[in-house]
Design a protein around this nucleic acid. Structure first.
Lengths: 190, 190
DNA sequence: ACAATCAATGAATACAAATTCAATATAATA
DNA sequence: TATTATATTGAATTTGTATTCATTGATTGT
């Protein structure tokens, strides 16, 4: 294995460790030395791989923003299936790949408060809520979703998903809910 | 007005200012000097009123924990009305009283990451999720709520509410959703 | 009016955590 | 093997804020 590959692998290890700790304890509660200890490596060496703590965070958030694009490719699927299917996959995938899970939570935290301003900007640049609102609108036109401001419905949907994911990040033992429960926020009642 | 009252009033002003800033920018992103400037008063004087930044936060979280008790007194109401009515009041009240609104968001943030450990402990000591799960169980027995783990349903419900409130804390213009949307997470379908 | 107590300030200090650095070990290259 | 480049460490330094403090101004009680 070449030196460059070694370095890349080490960077990845740091990123994954930092991601876990940021999600578990929060960005400011996590010291560089905590990350270093968990990797493990010396504190000083961290700066051989990343400019600063904030750079490390920003790289994670950028990765998250990039992978969010993948979600938006699903929007060819009919609305009634889209959301249930998305949640099913998200929960399944999260159970297997802690990376996906943690990344989802980190992005949510970044969008809200408790992280450097710059991280929020990047996280907010992915217009997921608006994209989803588009799908909801289709579902409304098809008569399967309840009427009302599509964007507001979109916000409610994502707020739920985010909240549940964060709850799962805290309670190891917690199991994912039935996607249908969450999707019923959107469904037409009667 | 006596000196003691003066002091109490000043403390309150600091608490309210800090609450607003903590919710808007997050605890660690808010400097003592930011709070002082907003009150307004000198930075040094802050320590005449509060031991430390963390004490200030803890006092807020304790206030929040205390006022959460009020919610739990509502649980004599029949389940089918309880949740819709609670949300209706929460949204109405939040629109009028920024205090209530901000406190709700702060408690949610404290329960999750991004604040000193001690704050989390206090916030988690209010067993709202379990209390609500009890009400949900009643609703399930009455056949109006969907079946499934009552605690998990309770978590989903609160995750949604929390997420929406946090979203509103960020978007000044955002309007509260119809409580029925959220409650449909709990309702038996068809 | 006078002493005593409290409110208030802003500059000085303390502190914790990020960041740098000189020194050393390890690996690649010729 | 000799030489150069990279990885690694731990201690020293820097930095950003919380916190303290000496001093001044305002209120209260006698």
């Amino acid at each position: 294995m070449t030196r460059k590959e070694q370095k890349e692998e080490r960077r990845r290890a740091i990123l994954m460790t930092a991601l876990t700790l940021f999600v578990k304890r929060g960005y400011y509660e996590t010291k560089i030395s905590d990350i270093a200890e968990a990797v493990p490596m010396s504190t000083g060496l961290m700066f051989h791989y990343f400019e600063s703590k904030e750079e490390l965070l920003l790289e994670l958030v950028k990765m998250g923003a990039a992978s969010t694009g993948a979600i938006n490719k699903m929007d060819e699927i009919p609305p009634q299936i889209f959301f249930t299917e998305f949640l099913k996959r998200l929960f399944e995938y999260s159970a297997k790949e802690p990376w996906v899970f943690n990344m989802f939570v980190l992005m949510g935290q970044a969008r809200r408060a408790g992280m450097p301003e710059e991280a929020r900007k990047i996280a907010l640049s992915t217009a997921t809520i608006d994209e989803t609102a588009g799908v909801i609108k289709k579902g409304q036109e098809a008569g399967i979703f309840r009427s009302g401001d599509a964007k507001l419905l979109s916000i409610c949907f994502w707020a739920t998903v985010q909240g549940i994911m964060e709850e799962m990040a805290l309670n190891e033992e917690m199991t994912a809910p039935d996607p249908a429960w969450i999707v019923s926020i959107l469904m037409k009642t009667e």
